[in-house]
């Protein structure tokens, strides 16, 4: 026998590896830090343009505002990582807290007269969200629908559902149990921000260090290979839709808290911002690629831009258009950066 399996060939051929700098660059991009220099630049520019920008009050305000989008985007990332998408998350943001609200408030305030005890609020909202997620998983895994069409249908259905259960009327002051997370402050810091940070941290750790996270990346990268490696692919898909909807339900609760009401139009348009934030953060719509650090940077970028444009008193029509332009520019940047650093082509 000529070749031994255990010949001393080093698997880490150091000499042929890339230089330290380009290795740092690759890691920087792969970890999802691409957008942070841009973010820093924006903050510096912002400090000069609008004096009110770099105040702690405004910064906390930005964080509070992005926490709803942030949770939705983190939820969306679960589904996008496995190469699917979920448009119905926008519907969940509106539907879940509305359902909780009508179950809580008395009939006189627009409720069903069920008047569930306050502690049930979160239970109802998140339970409904979770069930919706499981329904999505069922449609994709068991029925075999393309998630674009099944979640699009559900999005429209939920939009109508909100109007049905609320009789077309927003519910004001649905009670502290439902609004606490979105409105209370601890030591001057909004609870919503704390929730966002905690969720982002936990999900970030799971994505990077937990076997479930690893399974998500594997399924998104090559579903058949994941199956052959012994991963229960169907269960991973179900669970991704479940967590996505659950986090969107939580986002909806935060939003209801901040507005102190469950509004019938709540969450409209948020799915577009969520996709934008995910892509800006380096999440590949083809699946298998993306980090929570990146997602957070995408969410912050959108939040900071909106805030700056408002502070700079740009007319609101222009705010919307320029947000769109920035999204495209940022997506181009992320894609180019990830291609140049890793040489792997991704679909974003």
């Amino acid at each position: 026998m000529s070749v031994q399996a255990d010949t001393t060939s080093n698997s880490n051929a150091q000499d042929t590896g890339p230089s330290k700098l380009s290795a740092f660059g690759s890691a920087f991009v792969a970890q999802g830090f691409t957008m942070f220099p841009v973010l820093l630049l924006l903050i510096i520019v912002g400090a000069f343009v609008a004096p009110a920008f770099l105040t702690s009050r405004n910064l906390i305000n930005i964080l509070e505002q992005v926490s709803v989008l942030g949770l939705t985007t983190i939820g969306l990332t679960f589904v996008v990582l496995i190469g699917r998408l979920d448009l119905s998350l926008e519907g969940v943001v509106g539907f879940a807290p509305m359902l909780a609200a009508v179950m809580l408030v008395p009939a006189a305030a627009g409720g069903y007269g069920v008047e569930l005890p306050g502690w049930m609020a979160l239970f109802v909202a998140l339970g409904a969200a979770g069930l919706i997620g499981l329904f999505n998983g069922f449609m994709v895994v068991k029925v075999g629908l393309n998630p674009f069409i099944s979640t699009l249908g559900l999005l429209v259905l939920l939009r109508g559902g909100v109007l049905i259960i609320s009789n077309g009327r927003s519910i004001y002051s649905p009670g502290e149990a439902l609004t606490y997370l979105g409105s209370a402050k601890i030591l001057g810091l909004p609870v919503a921000v704390i929730v966002f940070v905690v969720v982002a941290t936990i999900v970030g750790l799971v994505f990077q260090f937990h076997r479930y996270g690893r399974a998500l990346y594997a399924v998104g990268g090559n579903e058949e290979a994941a199956r052959a490696a012994g991963i229960n692919v169907d269960r991973v898909i179900w669970s991704a839709f479940f967590f996505a909807a659950l986090l969107s339900g939580l986002a909806g609760v935060l939003l209801t808290g901040r507005l102190d009401s469950a509004v019938t139009t709540q969450g409209q348009g948020i799915i577009f911002s969520a996709f934008a934030a995910a892509v800006i953060g380096g999440v590949s719509l083809g699946g298998g690629k993306g980090t929570i650090i990146g997602v957070v940077s995408g969410v912050l970028l959108i939040g900071v831009i909106n805030n700056l444009l408002t502070l700079a008193q740009v007319p609101s029509f222009y705010v919307q258009a320029s947000t769109g332009a920035v999204i495209i520019i940022a997506a181009v940047l992320t894609t180019v950066a990830s291609q140049r650093s890793s040489g792997v082509k991704t679909r974003t």
């Binding site: 990268g221 090559n222 058949e224």
Partner: peptide, 13 residues
Amino acid sequence: HASGYVGILGVRE
């Protein structure tokens, strides 16, 4: 290519 490896992930993963 179809079911052996995940191309965008590293050797370790």
